[in-house]
């Protein structure tokens, strides 16, 4: 799949956001948010990240992934709920007019450095 190219992009984006004064400080943790509806598999991403991080500021750092549940909003009755199974129908009024409010995240949140 595409986890390796995403791992490389994460390292590029996160690497570019390290300020000059912290360059060379070992990175302890990289915090990500990944929605459960996204087409990225956290275990595969961790595997690829560990390889892609070699010889970068992130070598040996921990990839901390917060998985974001799929939260829906009914556009007919405003009801909001979280789904565990793929069922995009309002469990209150049965409408199929649904907006996905969360669950599509592929976000790089923050970098934690060793003290």
């Amino acid at each position: 799949m595409h986890e390796m190219s995403i791992a490389i992009q994460i390292i590029e984006i996160a690497g570019a956001s390290i300020p000059d004064e912290l360059k060379g400080t070992p990175v302890e943790k990289l915090n990500l948010k990944i929605g459960k509806l996204s087409a990225v598999i956290p275990d595969s991403l961790v595997f690829c990240f560990d390889i892609a991080a070699e010889n970068t500021a992130f070598e040996g750092s921990f990839l901390n992934i917060e998985e974001i549940p799929v939260r829906l909003k009914c556009l007919s009755c405003d009801h909001q709920w979280i789904i565990e199974e793929p069922a995009f129908k309002c469990d209150s009024c049965n409408s199929g007019s649904i907006e996905v409010i969360s669950g599509r995240e592929l976000d790089i949140e923050s970098i934690e450095f060793q003290d």
Binding site: I6, I10, S17, P19, L22, V40, D107, I108, E109, I111
Partner: peptide
């Protein structure tokens, strides 16, 4: 020490 990144992984795409 923690710094915010707050960017999307697929920003370039």
């Amino acid at each position: 020490m923690e710094i915010k990144v707050a960017q999307k992984m697929l920003d370039a795409n």
